[in-house]
Design a protein around this nucleic acid. Structure first.
Lengths: 148, 148
DNA sequence: GCAATATGCTTGCATATGCAATTATTTTGC
DNA sequence: GCAAAATAATTGCATATGCAAGCATATTGC
């Protein structure tokens, strides 16, 4: 009824929505953070200097810059992240994780890993997991686009 | 640094967010609907009687029942969907697509298919597409859970 | 048959998010 | 070197969404 590309894209959205919904409840009750707050801190950890501007965060998370501004404000207030200004460009305000934020991320990553395990609960082969990893990697937008 | 399950789950969310963001703009400007409105109409089309209660829609879309109520109201107003009451249970109000809604869905599906094609633009083999399809299918929650 | 419980839907309130406009700063073109 | 354009961040306004409470209708237990 639909071509294979359409079917795959629909299944991708379906699985992602399911997984995100299953995460949301546990993240909120156990760690007191949202999935997006978790992903924001993960992006900080993975960034080269462990810090990112709001604009960079917005691009990586596929949300608007204003969303980042409003997400970061309460995270600063509760001490998960801090700010770090750039000496050469006074417009830039880097977001950095505090020690408390790093610990929160570490805890949340354990929950994430557990939930991720549920996704592959029905005996997947190592080969399959590797293939899926490569396929998903190929589906991400070109890095060049991200830097633009 | 992370186990393969975690990596795959993270990539899944990343790809899905990217794809959803790329859809959102074109759906809004070309078809005047949101991605979620599109998915809602798609669920109606795929339902056995081509109609679903708000509660069923909420389960399938992984959103709250109140969200469905508020999504459907403007869609009714602009004539994309109508309502269909159940003779035996006066609490039930089925959502059904109007002819206009079906045409809108058909148009949007063409856009969706085009965007889905971009996801697999770099020469994927038929085998790979089939494997991905099966893998994503295995990752969806059990149907039994959905009906509960 | 009726009270207690469950179910489907809606609504009040709080939070989350995007877009466009605004401000502050930097970069570019000449 | 300076005006124009670009960039980073914020804010006002509108929309989107979840949770809990409320209402109407069905179902259950006795």
């Amino acid at each position: 009824m639909m071509d294979i590309h359409t079917t795959n894209a629909l299944r991708l959205l379906q699985v992602a929505d399911e997984f995100r919904a299953s995460l949301a409840g546990e993240f909120s009750s156990v760690h007191g953070i949202s999935v997006n707050e978790f992903l924001l801190m993960l992006h900080l950890k993975q960034a080269t200097a462990h810090r990112l501007s709001r604009v960079d965060l917005a691009k990586r998370m596929h949300v608007s810059a204003s969303t980042i501004t409003r997400m970061v404000a309460p995270m600063e207030k509760i001490g998960l992240v801090g700010r770090d200004v750039d000496a050469r460009d006074a417009r830039l305000v880097f977001v950095v994780a505090t020690p408390a934020g790093q610990e929160k991320l570490s805890d949340a990553l354990a929950t994430f890993a557990k939930r991720a395990g549920y996704l592959f609960a029905d005996r997947w082969e190592e080969d399959e997991l590797g293939q899926l990893s490569q396929m998903l990697h190929r589906m991400t937008a070109r890095k060049a686009d991200m830097l633009a």
